[in-house]
Every structure is written in C-alpha cells, then in structure tokens.
C-alpha cells in the first residue's frame, strides 16, 4: 500500500507543479501559432504572480480574494503583453528582442513596485487567503486516482479545462483556422480577407492572459506571496514544453506534466534513497528540450511564419 500511496502523492505533486506550466505553455502555443514568438512569457508570468498576490492581499480577508486576484492577473497579462504586440506587429521589431525586453521589464517593475508598496521589503506579505485544495466528493476517495487527480487546487482543474478549450478553439472554430493560417502563411491569409495584424494582436493578448494566470497560480497556490524568485525559469520551461509538445495544446500539456514530474521526482528520490544530485533534476527540462530540438527525441517543427513580421504588399 505504501507504493500506491507514494504513487498517488507523486502524481499529485506532478499536477501541482505542472499547472502553472500548462497555463503558460498554452499561451505560448496560441501566440506562436499566430506567428509571434513570445519569449516574454517568463516576464508576463512574473507580472501575473505579482498582480495576483497584490490584489489578493488588498482584498483579504474576503474568502473570494484569491479568485479576484487570479482574474486580475489575467487582465494584467493582457495589458502587459500589449507592448510586445505593438512592437512586434505594428512596428515590426525583432520579436525575440522585444520579448527579452519584456522579461527584463517585468522583473524590474514587479520588484520595484513591491518595494514601493511594502516599505522596501523585497516580497509581499504572506497571503492568508490563497487557493485551497478541492476534494471532489466520492471521486477523491478512490485509491491512487483519488489522491492523484481529485484532491487538487481549483487552478489545476481550470488548466485542464483550458487545454480542451484551446484545442477546440484552435482546431474546430473559424477563428482558430484563421489564427493558424496567419501563422503559417500570412500572405495567403491576407488574400483570403483575414486581418493579419488584428488576429495576431488577439493571439498575443490571449497568450498574455494565459501566461499571467500561470504566474498567479504559483503565487496563489505554492508560494503564498510574491518575491523576486517566485517565478524563476518556469516561463522558459513553459516555452520548452510548447516546443516539446510540438506547438499543440495536448502535446504542450503532456510535456508540462512530464516536466512537472521531473520536479516532483525529488520525493521519489527521497523515497528510494537514490543518489541523484538534485541539480540534474533541475536541468532535465532544459536538456530534454535541446535533445528534442536536435532531433534525438522526435521531430518538432515550428509554424512556418513564426518570428517574421508581416508587411502588407511584400512578397
């Protein structure tokens, strides 16, 4: 029985770690499918975590505070992704550089504002109202699966629902078809009467909202505050998950779960008393991504027009 309980715990932890990655990776998928590289996901997650924590703090002790904080983070993500959209769509800037600037700006701005608001402290006060785990009646009593799947944070359930929603929107709606066509062949899309710039703006804004929700998830479930290292690298792991998942929502979710597993295997290592240095577990997502890209583990190719600004009338 110890095995079953441990397995349940392991999957449970995996999902806790993966939730933020799933949100952000979905954001990455939507943006890149429309042809806009979004390296700025890390920065948007930072802003999401910051806004989520601060709004929640201001509304405490209301029990709904984390919910408002969560949605406020989503809106902040939309606003914060606008400079990237403006630079890379309207002004045809280098999308990678614009994203790097966004990352830079986010960490600076969020820590600056935290210090301004909390009398020079580098982190927000610890939140008293955060998301608590939901135990789904009956289902959570099932051995193994109950612990693994039905005792999670509400954000995890939202993330899994969003995977289905994003898949449906991308592959089963007219809007999704337009979004993908703009990312694969903007000229053809333009000829067919699709507004390339508008579609890309919408995609970047949705991507910002999703990434920020991912950031808020971290602040409102695992850390219960915001500090400079609440988000450190999760945005880049999410980009890795997007690539490993072949720019597909389901693939991205699978990759995010795999990377989440790599993080929670620490429990497993302790359980078995294995002697694997923890640094190698941290390295895993990044090394796997390099191997995937090098074609060692499956082939993955980006949307054709990703990273290229679209100029009306160019060939």
């Amino acid at each position: 029985m110890a095995w079953l309980a441990m397995g349940g715990d392991l999957l449970h932890d995996t999902i806790v770690f993966s939730t933020a990655l799933i949100f952000a990776a979905l954001g990455g998928v939507i943006s890149e499918r429309s042809g806009i590289v979004n390296i700025g996901i890390e920065g948007i997650m930072v802003m999401g975590a910051f806004v989520g924590a601060v709004v929640t703090f201001m509304l405490e002790p209301a029990p709904y505070a984390p919910w408002i904080g969560f949605f406020a983070a989503g809106i902040a993500g939309i606003i914060f992704s606008l400079p990237h959209a403006l630079a890379s769509i309207t002004f045809k800037a280098d999308q990678v550089i614009s994203g790097v600037a966004l990352n830079f700006l986010a960490t600076g701005l969020a820590v600056y504002l935290t210090k301004v608001m909390f009398d020079g402290a580098g982190q927000t006060k610890t939140l008293t109202e955060v998301f608590t785990k939901w135990e789904i009646p009956f289902l959570s009593d099932i051995p193994f699966f109950g612990r693994a799947l039905f005792q999670g944070y509400p954000t995890s359930y939202i993330a899994f629902i969003l995977v289905a929603v994003v898949w449906f929107v991308l592959f089963k709606t007219a809007f999704g078809l337009r979004l993908r066509s703009v990312g694969e062949h903007p000229r053809a899309a333009d000829t067919a009467g699709i507004n390339v710039a508008r579609t890309r703006y919408i995609a970047v804004m949705i991507s910002g909202a999703l990434a920020a929700l991912g950031g808020a998830t971290v602040a409102l479930t695992t850390t219960s505050n915001f500090s400079h290292n609440t988000i450190s690298g999760q945005g880049f792991i999410a980009i890795a998950a997007m690539i490993f998942g072949k720019w597909h929502p389901l693939g991205a979710m699978g990759a995010a779960l795999f990377f989440g597993l790599a993080q929670s295997v620490k429990t497993l290592i302790q359980f078995f008393g294995w002697n694997i240095p923890v640094e190698f577990m941290y390295m895993l997502p990044y090394v796997v991504t390099i191997l995937v890209l090098a074609g060692v583990v499956g082939k993955s190719s980006a949307p054709a027009a990703v990273g290229k600004p679209y100029e009306t009338g160019s060939r």
């Binding site: 400079p83 403006l86 630079a87 890379s88 309207t90 002004f91 045809k92 800037a93 280098d94 550089i97 614009s98 790097v100 600037a101 966004l102 830079f104 700006l105 960490t107 600076g108 701005l109 820590v111 600056y112 210090k115 301004v116 020079g120």
Partner: peptide, 22 residues
C-alpha cells in the same frame, strides 16, 4: 528609490531600440 528601477529603465531602452519604429 529601490534599485530595481534601473532595470525598468534598461528594459525600456532595449525595447525602444528594438522597436525603433516607435
């Protein structure tokens, strides 16, 4: 002024050089 402010300045400079259209 918290030192992180300078990060904001540098990020904005990168942004404006990248988006020199602005």
């Amino acid at each position: 002024v918290p030192v992180e402010l300078i990060r904001v300045v540098i990020a904005s400079v990168i942004f404006f050089v990248a988006a020199h259209g602005i």
